[in-house]
Each structure stands twice: as C-alpha cells, then as structure tokens.
C-alpha cells in the first residue's frame, strides 16, 4: 500500500477520529505536528518581518508626503513671486509708456507747475514771521504753505513750525492738530520727538495735566535718545 502524504494522513486521521484513532502511531503523528508547528513558526516569522517592512514603507510614504507638501509650498511661493514680478513689470511699463507719451507730445508735466524757488521762498518767509514773533501770521503762512505744497519735502518741518506758531498764538486746537500730523505721518522724522513734546505742551496749555504726563512718558518711551526725551524727563521729575 502506498504511504499517503503527511497532510492527507493527518486530515484523514482527524476526519475519522476517534473511530480510527489507532490508524497511525503516536510517534508519526507527533512528528507531523512538530513539522507543522515549525512551518507555522517560519510563516509567522516571515509575516512579522514583512509587516515590519510594510510599516517602514508606510513611514517612508509619510515622509515623502511631507516632502511633496514642502515642494508644493515652494511652488506656491514661486508662483506668487512670479505673479508679483509680472505685475510690477507691467506697472513699470505702463508708467514708462505714459511718461514717454508726455515727452513725445511735448506737453509739460504737472510737476512743472510747482516752482521750487517759490516753495523755499514761502517757507523762509513763514519762518521769518515766526522768528520775529508774529505768531498768528506765521501760523497762517505755514497753513498756506502746507496746502499749497502738499508734496514738499519741507512738509514735516512746516507742520512742526505751524504747530509751534499756533501754540504761541494760543490757538491750541490748531497747534495740536499740526503736531499730531507730524507724529502720525512722519514718526521717524527728526522733528517727531519735538512734535510729540509739542502735543504735551498743548495739553498743559489746556490744563490736562494727566494727559500731558502720559504724553511726556510716550516721548521718553518712543524716542528715548532724543533731546525731547531729556526735557520730558526733567518735566516729569519736577
């Protein structure tokens, strides 16, 4: 009789067991089971190492997704930069084109309407009024200056002097307005610390001692190295 394959033997044993329990002897069955167990262990080991590999793969995919996201971010930034450059270039072109057209047509640009000589002459005149103690007139002259020469480089100074003149002329509201204009529009200007000090002077003139003190503190904190801060410190100390 042909010997059946171990698997079939075992299956047969199981199917017929317990009726045919004694078909194979114990030793053979045990051997078979040990073999199956070894096989099973080997398969499990293989599975474990393969699932470990799968985990590593999953980790790698995660890392690559992060890398793709970073690259996507780079692309978004580059596209954005390119759009901005394109737009700026177009703006330049339009501006240049407009200027060339003006030149070609021979028309005078609006800039030509402002006479730089008149600008500095008016400024000097207003300043002289202030120096000679004609405060009300000086204030008016500076007022006119700032409206006439809205693009002037003297503007921060003009506002500052207008404020000083108005303060001397006891027009506190107007003075406050001018000083604040300097502080708000040109906070980095050399006149700004003094203008803020001017605001404090206006507040003192109005009897607003608490506000004055706060403004003096602001002078010190915002322009710590300025001469205005020095005098603010003295006034707070007194």
């Amino acid at each position: 009789m042909m010997r059946p394959a171990p698997w079939i033997a075992l299956l047969a044993a199981l199917l017929t067991w317990p009726a045919h329990a004694g078909l194979f002897d114990d030793a053979e069955a045990r051997k078979e089971i040990m073999r199956i167990r070894d096989d099973h262990t080997a398969r499990l080991d293989a599975l474990e190492s393969s699932s470990r590999a799968t985990l590593q793969l999953a980790n790698q995919i995660e890392a690559m997704k992060a890398e793709v996201a970073r690259l996507r971010g780079d692309v978004e930034l580059l596209m954005h930069d390119m759009e901005s450059v394109k737009k700026r270039q177009q703006d330049f072109y339009v501006d240049l084109d407009a200027r060339l057209r003006t030149l070609e047509s021979g028309a005078a640009g609006p800039a030509a309407q402002i006479d730089p000589a008149a600008e500095s002459r008016d400024y000097e005149n207003a300043l002289n009024l202030l120096k000679s103690g004609k405060y009300a007139e000086a204030a008016t002259a500076f007022d006119t200056f700032v409206t006439t020469y809205a693009g002037s480089s003297f503007l921060p100074s003009a506002h500052f002097w207008a404020g000083s003149a108005a303060l001397q002329a006891k027009d506190i509201a107007r003075a406050t307005q001018h000083f604040n204009t300097v502080v708000n529009q040109w906070p980095q200007d050399a006149r700004a610390p003094d203008a803020l000090l001017g605001v404090a002077n206006c507040q003192r003139a109005m009897g607003e001692r608490r506000l004055e003190q706060n403004t003096l503190k602001a002078v010190i904190s915002q322009y710590p190295d300025s001469a205005a801060a020095k005098s603010a410190k003295q006034r707070l100390g007194s």
Binding site: N180, V183, N184, L211, N214, T215, K217, A218, S221, Q222
Partner: peptide, 11 residues
C-alpha cells in the same frame, strides 16, 4: 476721519 498712530498712553 483721521485716526491716529498708536501711542502708548496708559490710562
């Protein structure tokens, strides 16, 4: 209309 630059005024 004109709103003002931030000033550190502690009230």
């Amino acid at each position: 209309t004109d709103l003002f630059r931030y000033l550190l005024i502690t009230l």
